[in-house]
Design a protein around this nucleic acid. Structure first.
Length: 415
RNA sequence: CGGGGCGUAGUAUACCGGUAGUACGAGUGCUUUGGGAGCAUUUAGACCGGGUUCAAUUCCCGGCGCCCCGACCA
C-alpha cells in the first residue's frame, strides 16, 4: 500500500487524555481514534492488526472443530429474564424501541446460544459440538480505562461447547487450554502469558484465565517460577501453592486478562431447557463450556509488551504489513531516480505476495523514520540516493536489531 | 459508585477580571534533503448554561465531557 494514500497520519504528540501506553501509541500512530470514553474506532492500520489477531484465533478455533457463527447484539429481554440476569447484571445496556419493547445490547451470548443450540440438539448423537463468533460486546463499565484494555464496546471471540456429560466437557476444556496457549504464542505474547487459576464461581472449583504480565494490567497474579502456572489474586487465599506442580514460592505480578475459559456445566442449559435423550431414552441437560478472548484487548496487551517511547515493534504475525519500504528522496535531481528504484522493488515484493507499506511521501528522512518507528513494522527496507548509486538496499530487522546493505537479489531472497 | 484532577485553534500548551500568545499541524512561495529542517506568509481557539461584575476565557454555581485512584468486573 502507498503510504501517501493512507487517510490517517501519524502525529508527534498523544492527546492529553490518552495516558495509557497502548492508547497513546496507537492513537499517535494512527491505528485507533477515541470516540468517547471506552469506545474506539479502528483505523486502517489498527484494523489490519485486529484482523490478523482474529484470523489467528479463527484458525485455532477451527482446529478444534469450532464452527463460526454470528449472533445478534440486539437481544430480547425475555432471554435475560429467563436466566435472571436482566435485573442482576449491572453492566447490561438496556434499550427500548418505539413500541416500548425492551432489549439488551449483548454483553455476552449465553442467553442467545443456549436457545439456539436447543433448535438442533435432541439426541446424544447431536453432541458434542462447538461454535464461536467474533462479536461486539457492550458492557456498561462504571469506569472505562487503560485505553483499549477496558472498553464499553469491544470485540470478543466467544466460543461455546456442548457436551453430553461432565467428562466430555472436561476433555474438551483441557484441549482448549492448549489451543489458547497457542493463540497467545502466535500473536507474540506467549512467554508473558500465563495459564492462571481463577475463581470458578458456583459451578466449578476453578475457571482458567490467560494473564499477560504487564505493568498496565489491572489484575494481580502469583506465578510459579518452576512451571509458569499462575494463581489469580482473587483465590490466593484458598490456593496458596502452584495448582499444577505444588511449588510454594510464587511471584506476584500485575497482569491483564487476555482470555478466559470456564465450565458452564448446566447453568444455562437448564433455564432454556436444553436437554438431550441418551441411548436409553433418558433425558439429561446438556453440559456447556465457554471460552473467551478479546482480540482488541490482546492487541493492547501486545502494545504494552512491545511498545517504547518511539513506537511499536509488532510481532511479525500481527504486523499490519510485513515490510515498510521507505524512499529517501533527497534532492530534486536524485529524487526521481530513487523513486523509480523504490517503486520497482515495491512492485516486485507485491508480486511475490508480500504485504508492503511503501512510504512514497515527499518528506524528509527524519520524519519518515520517526513515523516508521511509530507504526512499528518489523522489517524495513530503505532506498536512498547513496544506496541507489551503489546498487544496494538497506535492510533492517527491527526486532533483531539487525541492519545490513544488500543487493536486490539478496533482498528478494530474504522474503 | 466513592474520591481527586482537568476542559483554551486540528494537536500540545501559556498568560490574564479589560485586544488570548507560542510551538507543531495544515495552505502558499523560496531554500534545504539519511533521524521530526530554515525563512517568509496564511489559516485556525476559550465545552454548555446561569450568577457576580461597568467588564468573565479568567471568580462562583450547575450541567456535560475526559483522565487518574479505589470499588466493581461469568
Amino acid at each position: 500500500m502507498l503510504q501517501s494514500k493512507l487517510f490517517t497520519r501519524p502525529r508527534k504528540e498523544a492527546p492529553r487524555d490518552e495516558v495509557s501506553k497502548n492508547a497513546a501509541l496507537l492513537v499517535r500512530a494512527g491505528f485507533i481514534d477515541k470516540l468517547h470514553a471506552g469506545v474506539y474506532t479502528y483505523l486502517p492500520l489498527g484494523l489490519m492488526v485486529l484482523k490478523k489477531v482474529e484470523n489467528i484465533i479463527r484458525e485455532e478455533m477451527n482446529s478444534v472443530g469450532g464452527q463460526e457463527i454470528y449472533m445478534p447484539s440486539l437481544q430480547p429481554k425475555e432471554n435475560w429474564v429467563k436466566t435472571g440476569r436482566w435485573d442482576t447484571l449491572d453492566v447490561l445496556y438496556k434499550v427500548t424501541d418505539q413500541s416500548g419493547r425492551e432489549m439488551a445490547l449483548g454483553p455476552t451470548h449465553e442467553e442467545i446460544v443456549a436457545p439456539l443450540a436447543k433448535l438442533f440438539v435432541t439426541s446424544y448423537k447431536d453432541l458434542p459440538f462447538s461454535c464461536y463468533q467474533f462479536q461486539n460486546k457492550f458492557r456498561m463499565e462504571l469506569r472505562a480505562k487503560s485505553g483499549i484494555l477496558r472498553t464499553r464496546e469491544f470485540i470478543m471471540k466467544d466460543m461455546y461447547s456442548f457436551h453430553r456429560d461432565e467428562k466430555d466437557l472436561k476433555e474438551f476444556y483441557e484441549k482448549m487450554k492448549v489451543v489458547y496457549a497457542r493463540v497467545f504464542e502466535r500473536i507474540g505474547i506467549g512467554s508473558q502469558t500465563h495459564l492462571t487459576y481463577a475463581s470458578g464461581g458456583s459451578f466449578s472449583q476453578f475457571s482458567h484465565e490467560f494473564q499477560t504480565v504487564t505493568v498496565a494490567g489491572e489484575d494481580i497474579v502469583y506465578i510459579c517460577g518452576k512451571c509458569g502456572t499462575a494463581v489469580n489474586d482473587e483465590i490466593i487465599g484458598i490456593q496458596t501453592t502452584c495448582p499444577n506442580c505444588g511449588e510454594s514460592k510464587l511471584k506476584s505480578e500485575k497482569s491483564i486478562e487476555v482470555g478466559n475459559i470456564f465450565e458452564l456445566k448446566t447453568k444455562f442449559s437448564e433455564p432454556f431447557d436444553l436437554i438431550y435423550t441418551d441411548e436409553n431414552g433418558e433425558k439429561h441437560p446438556v453440559h456447556m463450556g465457554c471460552y473467551g478472548i478479546g482480540p482488541a484487548r490482546a492487541m493492547g496487551a501486545v502494545v504494552e509488551v512491545y511498545g517504547n517511547e518511539n513506537g511499536m515493534i509488532w510481532p511479525e504475525s500481527i504486523s499490519p504489513f510485513r515490510i515498510h519500504l521507505i524512499s529517501i528522496l533527497g534532492s530534486a535531481d536524485s529524487g526521481a531516480e530513487v523513486r523509480a528504484v523504490a517503486e520497482d522493488i515495491y512492485r516486485e515484493l507485491e508480486k511475490k505476495g508480500i504485504s508492503v507499506l511503501y512510504d512514497d511521501r515527499d518528506l524528509r528522512a527524519g520524519e519518515k523514520f520517526a513515523d516508521a518507528d511509530l507504526i512499528g513494522i518489523p522489517h524495513r527496507i530503505i532506498v536512498s540516493e547513496k544506496l541507489v548509486k551503489a546498487s544496494q538496499y538497506e535492510y533492517k530487522d527491527r526486532s533483531a536489531d539487525l541492519e545490513k546493505n544488500v543487493s536486490k537479489s539478496e533482498l528478494l531472497a530474504l522474503f
